[in-house]
Design a protein around this nucleic acid. Structure first.
Lengths: 139, 139
DNA sequence: GTATCTGCAAAAGATTTGCAGCAAG
DNA sequence: CTTGCTGCAAATCTTTTGCAGATAC
């Protein structure tokens, strides 16, 4: 993957810099959706990278389908590695933690919706909200 | 509804001011999800209301379940009158218009998800994206 | 009258941008 | 060496907040 990306970036006149490499590693390892701030704070100690650079890198990765935007919660964007697998999120209303969920019964619904609305539907976004096991205990 | 609300607000030590009445009328008439800015611009000519006041009013209506937050798109909040009916949205990626859709096959999925994750799920949010009939033609 | 509302201006928080120096190829 | 990347500071955009005067009841 890393080698492929490097080739790919070159073909787009983009450079495979140290920062991009480190951010990419973060993205590849992280199972849960994350924010720009999450990356910033995680890397702060060993490889501090300016927040602007992180945002710029995330946008480049988004444009090139290396990354996907998976949620927007209280004005904050959440990202995840682009997966072949279709995924959605489960968000804790209390601690704002986000976990991914798989399986999705919605694709079947798509066609009937296209017929009834006249829209051409290209994607959907689904979020469940509730209390995670930890926050459930505290109440 | 208007009379009930007035009683209700009184019981909460909230006043039924002219501004709140006008904003409420907007909310009741508007079929599509709307933003604070939408209200501001619509009322600007006949009943200009300060944006802060609009935001404050929306938040009060939210807390009192007169209004619901239905989407968050590119950093902007979308609201709709609280409906008994469960609803979701269909958003045009091109012109950003939003229309509500009814029927939702997801409630059945909730229980199995609660079992598998340990979360207590309280709500879900679903958005479809695509091209509306107008924008489809232009392409 | 007095508690709540409102407009205004300023603050806050996430994200973007301009620019001058730095690094990759 | 040349083009693209980075850090920094400042700008931007939506939403929130503090405050002093206005309004509802």
């Amino acid at each position: 993957m890393k080698e492929n990306l490097q080739e790919y970036l070159k073909s787009k006149n983009l450079k495979f810099t140290k920062n991009r490499k480190i951010i990419l590693e973060y993205i590849n390892e992280k199972k849960e959706p994350f924010t720009a701030e999450d990356i910033y704070r995680t890397l702060l100690h060993d490889h501090p990278i300016n927040l602007s650079t992180i945002y710029r890198t995330l946008n480049i990765f988004l444009e090139n389908n290396i990354l996907q935007k998976t949620a927007e919660i209280d004005g904050v964007l959440y990202f995840q590695k682009m997966e072949k697998k279709h995924q959605h999120q489960l968000i804790c209303s209390n601690c704002k933690s986000v976990i991914p969920i798989e399986n999705c019964p919605l694709s079947e619904w798509k066609e009937s919706l296209e017929t009834s609305t006249g829209y051409e539907i290209t994607s959907h976004h689904l979020e469940f909200r509730g209390l995670c096991p930890k926050c459930k205990k505290k109440k």
